[in-house]
């Protein structure tokens, strides 16, 4: 799959162009990257990554936006209450989901959604990318930051 990534990212870029979404392919991140204005002088970065399901399978995309970084030091971690709140909010979220991504230094609260690339149309990409960006920014704003 790794060898297919540049070509698939190029396809994502093409559909983004059709949706009049500006972005670029970040070769290091292996992602198509877009920045969204989310209002009130806030912005949110969205990354589109590609992957395949199974041998010769359909190419999928994952639209992701990091919302918060939580260092896993002894005094700072995701509390039980916060985890429950994320679960509750997940239920009310449309076109996106909250999740936790582990990194060597901590955890990232990531908003994401997955779509099939082959049949993806411009409007679908636009709606989902905005939904992910807005959900991530809304969550991040609750903690007073605009890092992403």
């Amino acid at each position: 799959m790794a060898d297919d990534t540049p070509a698939l990212l190029r396809q994502v870029e093409s559909i983004a162009a059709l949706a009049a979404l500006r972005g670029w392919i970040d070769e290091k991140e292996q992602a198509f990257v877009m920045d969204f204005e989310t209002g009130g002088y806030r912005s949110q970065r969205v990354l589109v990554r590609v992957f395949a399901l199974g041998p010769g399978g359909k190419a999928m995309i994952s639209i992701q936006s990091p919302a918060r970084f939580i260092a896993t030091r002894w005094f700072k971690r995701l509390s039980r209450g916060e985890a429950l709140r994320l679960l509750h909010e997940n239920e009310s979220l449309r076109f996106a989901r909250y999740g936790l991504v582990s990194t060597p230094k901590g955890m990232i609260v990531m908003v994401s959604c997955d779509l099939m690339l082959e049949t993806l149309d411009a409007e679908e990409l636009r709606v989902h990318a905005y939904a992910v960006a807005n959900a991530a920014d809304r969550y991040e704003a609750q903690f007073g930051g605009d890092q992403y």
Binding site: D3, D4, G54, P55, G56
Partner: peptide, 13 residues
């Protein structure tokens, strides 16, 4: 080769 799960999709195509 065409159905080899260890082959990149582009190569299989």
């Amino acid at each position: 080769l065409a159905v080899d799960p260890l082959l990149p999709t582009a190569d299989a195509g």
